[in-house]
């Protein structure tokens, strides 16, 4: 199980959180079909450091982002 550090509550078990996938995906209301499809369906899927969001669903209900390594699962505020 991952140990995830919530900025408000500190380190807590993964089971308290919901995964929010890639951080910083910009909403693109004026996109053409291809750009809209990319906005809806395509995310980075790197083997290595990944900037992603988590939601402390069973805690303070804060959304926050971390950098996590997708092989080691190490988490940092900066990669």
């Amino acid at each position: 199980m991952l140990l995830i550090t919530c900025p408000h509550c500190g380190p807590r078990d993964e089971t308290e959180f919901r995964y929010g996938d890639q951080a910083g995906v910009a909403y693109t209301p004026d996109a053409d079909d291809a750009a809209w499809a990319a906005y809806l369906f395509v995310r980075d899927n790197p083997k290595g450091w990944f900037h992603e969001r988590w939601f402390h669903a069973h805690g303070c209900r804060t959304w926050f982002s971390v950098h996590r390594h997708t092989v080691t699962h190490e988490m940092r505020q900066q990669p």
Binding site: M1, L2, E14, R18, Y19, D21, N45, K47, F50, E52, R68, T70, V71, T72, H73
Partner: peptide, 10 residues
């Protein structure tokens, strides 16, 4: 739930 290439889960 999370993405990974680590070949292990929680």
């Amino acid at each position: 739930a999370y993405t990974s290439y680590g070949r292990r889960g929680s």
